[in-house]
Structures are given as C-alpha cells and as structure tokens.
C-alpha cells in the first residue's frame, strides 16, 4: 500500500518531465520538417541553441534551486547586466580577465547572501526582495557606465580568445554546397553550462543540502521539526542562485561581448518559464534540473524557429513561451487538484 502510494507520487512528476521532453522533440522535429531546406536539420543548429542559451542554462539551474524552496529570484536578469558591465568596464581599465571573473563570482555570492538573509532570516517575501535586488542591479549597471561598452581583442586578448574558441566535435558534421566539410563545434561557455548542470543535478539528488532544499519546499514546518535549519538553507539557496547567475553572466558575456544597461531584460522571466515548463512546481518541493534544461531547450527552439522563418514578428517567441507557460501551469494545477482529491 505504502509502496504503491510513493510510486504514484513519483509518476505524476515524471509524467510532467516526459511531457516536456516529448514537447521538445515534437517542436524540434516540426522545425526540421518545416525549415529543413534552411539548414534546421544540421546538428549545428542544435549546438547553436546551446551556445546562445549557455548563460540561461546556468541561471535556470540556480532558479530551480530557489524555486524548490518555494521562493523566486527575479533579480537574475539585472545581475547578469551588472556582471557584463563590470567585466567590460573592468577589463577596459586594465584588469585581467581572470581577476575580474573572480571578483564577479564573489559579488554574486555576496549579493545572494544578502538577498537570502532578507528572505530567510527576516522572512520578507522573496518576490519583493528580489524585485529590490533587480532595481538595485539595473541601477548600479547605469551607475558603473551608461554607455554600451564592447569587449574587443585589444581590451582583453584572453577573454576574446575564450569567446572565439571553437571546440570541434568529432561527429555530426556535414558537407556544404561548396563541397567543404563543416565540423560541428561548441563554445567553451557551453562546456561550463553543462558542467554546472551536472554538478547541480548531483547536488540536488545525492547531497544532504540538495535533499534539504526539497524538504523545505515540501513543508517548511515539517522540515523545521526534522531539525533542519530552514533559515540557513533558504539563505544558501539564494546564494547558490546568485552565484550560478554570475557564472551564467560570464557565459552570457562571452556570447554578447559587451556590457549595456538594457542587456538581458526579461531574462528572469525566461528562466522562470523554463523551470516551470520543465516541471518545477512554484509552490516548491518538486522539480529537477533535467526538466529545466529541457525547458531552456524548448525556449531556444521556439526562438530559433522564429528566427529561421524570418517573416514572423519579433514578438512571437514571447507569446508562444507565455502560451506554453500557461498550458504547463494549468496542467500542474490539475495534477495538484487530483493529488488533493486522492488525499481526501
């Protein structure tokens, strides 16, 4: 009896994950069928989705951790803008790439600790705290510099080399119409993002901290009664989110090679919708990063399809993502209602 019950619980969550993966496959296959002539079928198209969304993958991993505790962090987009601006201005003023990256990671961690303290220890609503964080970062970006600063080869040869390094994969290439073999490649940022994904997956599944995130999200009271330090765990979750966001910011910067005030606006919403589409419950306690990863891929596929089409208005990716978000939220609430009825 008991075993059957846990199995069912497990099932309704895996169904969501399967729906997500199936949706990605359907979307991608649809893209391949519709735009096969424009090169959508090449393996490189898939890798390009990874390259453009490397930063978003890191951010979504952090967002998933925060959402597991039942919170939310909408400061990530602004934090990325601040990171990019700091990187650009810092390197322009003669700092090396490595020290700047260390500084940015430190800033991310400290910023996260501050947000986590307000949420965990002062029990302020996460939305309000991270909204203030968003204002702060966006404003600080403008305080650092109001113009767009690009990172060129003269400013930092190391950073430039990282951004343009190609890691060639030994398989999946094709011969183009001039008869030249095009080897598929990824950028270093993708490797970083995938590493982050694996580390967070292991962290959430096999470590004490990871499991306690689920416990806090499931029921804060029970977690406290089990002897977990709920406040500390919440604070660590926000710290992790901002830290991963800073890593994501560096990946993002490797892609855009510039810092500007209006960079990465709305990225927080992409991260949240990716996590939700990936099956993370906003009430906390359910979700994993594999689902979130597929959520990012779905977002990426949609914008890639719209870009390949070339005729659709630029606002379509937003509308489609919002529609998907709507569908998944409704599915989640139906599952939740079914679960509640079973309990009763």
């Amino acid at each position: 009896m008991d075993k059957a019950k846990t199995k069912k619980q497990y099932n309704s969550n895996t169904i969501l994950l399967f729906i997500t993966i199936a949706l990605f496959i359907v979307l991608y296959a649809g893209g391949c069928v519709a735009y096969g002539s424009k090169g959508f079928t090449h393996f490189q198209t898939f890798l390009n989705i990874l390259i453009t969304n490397a930063g978003l993958i890191c951010v979504t991993c952090g967002m998933t951790c925060v959402m597991l505790t039942g919170g939310i962090d909408i400061s990530v987009g602004a934090l990325i803008a601040m990171d990019c601006m700091l990187l650009a201005v810092g390197m322009k003023n003669g700092m090396g790439a490595v020290p700047m990256i260390i500084i940015i990671l430190l800033i991310g961690a400290v910023f996260g600790i501050f947000q986590g303290f307000l949420v965990g220890y002062l029990e302020i609503q996460p939305f309000i705290v991270s909204m203030a964080g968003m204002f702060f970062c966006r404003g600080m970006t403008a305080v650092i510099c109001t113009d767009q600063v690009s990172i060129t080869q003269e400013i930092s040869p190391t950073f430039y080399a990282w951004a343009n390094a190609k890691i060639v994969l030994p398989f999946g290439g094709y011969t183009n119409n001039k008869g030249k073999y095009m080897a598929p490649y990824v950028r270093p940022a993708v490797i970083v993002a995938l590493l982050v994904l694996v580390v967070i997956f292991i962290l959430l599944r096999y470590t004490k901290f990871g499991r306690s995130l689920y416990a806090v999200g499931g029921s804060e009271q029970s977690a406290a009664m089990m002897g977990l330090n709920v406040k500390m765990i919440k604070m660590k979750a926000y710290m992790l989110s901002s830290f991963l966001c800073s890593i994501g910011g560096i990946c993002y910067c490797l892609n855009t090679m510039a810092g500007s005030v209006s960079q990465a606006t709305g990225l927080e919403m992409d991260a949240i919708s990716s996590a939700v589409i990936g099956g993370t419950l906003l009430t906390g306690g359910v979700g994993n990063v594999i689902g979130s990863f597929f959520g990012v891929l779905i977002n990426g596929t949609i914008s890639s399809i719209v870009k390949t089409n070339g005729k659709l208005a630029s606002s379509w990716p937003n509308i489609l993502t919002a529609m998907l978000l709507f569908i998944f939220i409704v599915i989640q609430s139906i599952f939740a209602a079914i679960r509640e009825r079973k309990k009763a």
Partner: peptide, 23 residues
C-alpha cells in the same frame, strides 16, 4: 539619470520592508 534612479528606489524598498518585517 533615469537609469540610475532604480538604485535609490531599491534602497527605499529594502528599508521599508525591513522595518515592516515581523522578525
């Protein structure tokens, strides 16, 4: 400037919510 104003707004928000926070 318009872009820098949010910093002050953020500080004001944080001050208000901290003062209002039960803990």
């Amino acid at each position: 400037s318009t872009n820098q104003a949010p910093v002050f707004k953020a500080i004001i928000v944080i001050l208000i919510v901290v003062i209002e926070a039960p803990p």
